[in-house]
């Protein structure tokens, strides 16, 4: 494992790298604009949005928030251990991070199955159109994040690993981005209307 000293105070080197932070802001603005559009649409049919929101299980949303927050914590601990050259602990916490992501996906899968079974598909009404588009787009990000974390894990597991601290930090930043997006989606879709 290669490690270099990175000064985060440099404007060109935020934690995770400048390219990833440009992606993070693009993603946040994309989801942010979509959520604003959802709230704007709700003004045309507030009762429909309220009634539709009540069909969602907010407890599942809370538990999924818990999974992502704890998973984000494990990711941060993993990076912390890597900086201290503790490779075994880094890999252990990386596995726990991925477990959190998998639990999130499993619960989301259950929720989706439940909604499809009840007939609340993407064409049911405007609320569910936004619900499916936004949450599915987020799920795609979580899946991509898990693939990135798995590749980092296997990269670190090699005997002559060329994985740098910057690579792990960049993948961690992507994973935390999934957390950040969910922290915006959850209250608006599941609680506000």
């Amino acid at each position: 494992m290669k490690s270099d000293t990175i000064s985060y105070k440099n404007i060109y080197y935020p934690p995770g790298g400048i390219l990833l932070w440009i992606i993070i802001f693009l993603e946040l603005f994309t989801f942010g604009i979509a959520l604003i559009a959802m709230v704007y649409s709700s003004k045309e049919a507030p009762e429909l949005f309220h009634e539709s929101r009540l069909y969602l299980n907010s407890t599942i949303g809370v538990v999924n928030t818990f999974f992502l927050i704890v998973s984000g914590f494990f990711m941060a601990v993993s990076v912390h251990n890597l900086k201290q050259q503790k490779l075994d602990k880094t890999k252990l916490f990386l596995k726990l991070t991925m477990l959190g992501g998998l639990l999130f996906l499993a619960l989301k899968g259950y929720e989706y199955f439940d909604k499809i079974d009840a007939g609340f598909n993407i064409g049911y009404n405007t609320f569910f159109k936004y619900y499916w588009m936004l949450t599915l787009f987020h799920v795609v990000h979580v899946i991509v994040g898990l693939v990135i974390l798995a590749s980092v894990y296997f990269g670190l597991s090699k005997t002559n690993s060329t994985t740098k601290l910057e690579d792990v930090e960049a993948s961690a930043a992507f994973w935390h981005m999934c957390d950040l997006i969910w922290l915006l989606l959850f209250p608006i879709i599941y609680l506000l209307f």
């Binding site: 985060y8 105070k9 404007i11 935020p14 934690p15 995770g16 914590f73 990711m75 935390h176 957390d179």
Partner: peptide, 15 residues
């Protein structure tokens, strides 16, 4: 999440 887990607290003021 952004300031502590992602360590933005240590980043340049711009970020």
């Amino acid at each position: 999440v952004s300031f502590y887990f992602m360590e933005m607290k240590k980043a340049h003021v711009f970020w």
